[in-house]
């Protein structure tokens, strides 16, 4: 159900004019028990946000139920709680929001100040995190194989970036467009992790998910952007199936036709470009390209748009001379574009 119509238009207008955050929070609170907001519909909040331009964080404790938004436990500006997962996800969502704003000049997920809804303690021993079209949800893991998924900045940034992709290229989550969807989340996740850790491309580990490994898998990771296919090899997970070249492209139907598998190919190219011009500049090129893609984009189309973005940004002197050639060389090394 849309929240359109709950509040008369003149009240909305006044709220927007007043630009008062308390009013927004209270409006939100009074409605939080109603049906959750659909990202596909214009609602009262996006109208108010258009004026306020400041995305607020709302952290919900799912209390280990398989249900989102069970209890609001921390909202924007509230002091830290006694729950480490709540505080971490609040902080990491803040770091991600600030990176988008300061480095990529994007105002939240929709570039219009959309609030960030974060659910923690979802389900029982739930070993996952996901984006459902409106909000982010994180499980606790079982404490042995995986810890809580909110304990890692790159996981939070990855999930939030699925939201950004939805509001930009809206890449179909299947096959090559789905692998690109995963790729952009890994790209921004890594860029934000390096920005936060203040490390260069040379010093970074380029691993995804290594922070959420429990004692059983300690030392392993979920993906490696530097060397796809080497992140893990154990009895529990099997062997990392990510290819680092088109010649090893996965053609099976598993995982929505390999969205988390074939993302290894463009991931490697991003790593190579970052080593050349720096991760922050590479991320800027990729982000500009994301805004030019279409929902059914394939790898070849993405390579073209990433090279186009490198040219545009070189022209604007926002990335170094030679960035376009670096992009082409990196993709050539992973077998792209295909003929």
């Amino acid at each position: 159900m849309s929240r359109c119509g709950f509040i008369p238009p003149f009240v909305l207008e006044n709220l927007a004019k007043a630009n008062v955050e308390e009013a927004r929070i209270s409006a939100w609170d009074s409605n939080q028990t109603t049906a959750k907001r659909s990202a596909r519909e214009i609602n009262v909040y996006s109208l108010v946000q258009a004026a306020a331009k400041n995305p607020l964080r709302y952290v919900y404790d799912c209390q280990n139920k398989g249900q989102q938004r069970v209890k609001l436990v921390r909202k924007e500006g509230d002091p830290a709680t006694g729950d480490q997962d709540v505080n971490l996800v609040y902080d990491f969502a803040g770091v991600t929001r600030d990176f988008y704003k300061n480095t990529l000049k994007r105002n939240s997920i929709d570039d219009n100040g959309l609030d960030l809804i974060l659910n923690v303690h979802y389900g029982v021993k739930y070993m996952n995190a996901y984006w459902d079209g409106d909000e982010m949800t994180f499980g606790d893991g079982d404490g042995k194989i995986f810890t809580a998924f909110d304990k890692s900045l790159d996981v939070v940034a990855h999930e939030l970036t699925h939201g950004v992709t939805q509001y930009t290229a809206n890449l179909v989550y299947k096959g090559q467009s789905g692998a690109l969807n995963e790729h952009f989340s890994d790209v921004i996740g890594s860029a934000i992790q390096q920005y936060y850790d203040k490390v260069t491309a040379e010093k970074a580990d380029w691993l995804i998910g290594n922070e959420i490994m429990g004692p059983t898998l300690y030392g392993e990771a979920l993906r490696s952007m530097k060397a796809p296919g080497t992140a893990y090899d154990n009895d529990l997970l099997g062997k990392d199936p990510q290819p680092d070249h088109m010649k090893d492209y996965y053609n099976g139907s598993s995982d929505n036709y390999g969205v988390h598998i074939n993302s290894g190919i463009p991931n490697k190219a991003f790593y190579l470009v970052s080593m050349d011009i720096g991760t922050d500049k590479a991320a800027l090129i990729w982000y500009e390209a994301l805004k030019k893609l279409i929902p059914t984009a394939d790898f070849n189309f993405a390579v073209k748009k990433i090279a186009d973005s490198a040219r545009d940004l070189t022209n604007k002197k926002q990335v170094p001379q030679g960035s376009t050639q670096s992009v082409r060389a990196a993709f050539k090394e992973v077998g792209l574009p295909t003929k």
């Binding site: 070993m127 996952n128 959420i212 979920l222 988390h260």
Partner: peptide
């Protein structure tokens, strides 16, 4: 069960 952020099928 398949898919998911972590590849534990």
């Amino acid at each position: 069960r398949e898919g998911g952020y972590a590849p534990l099928q």
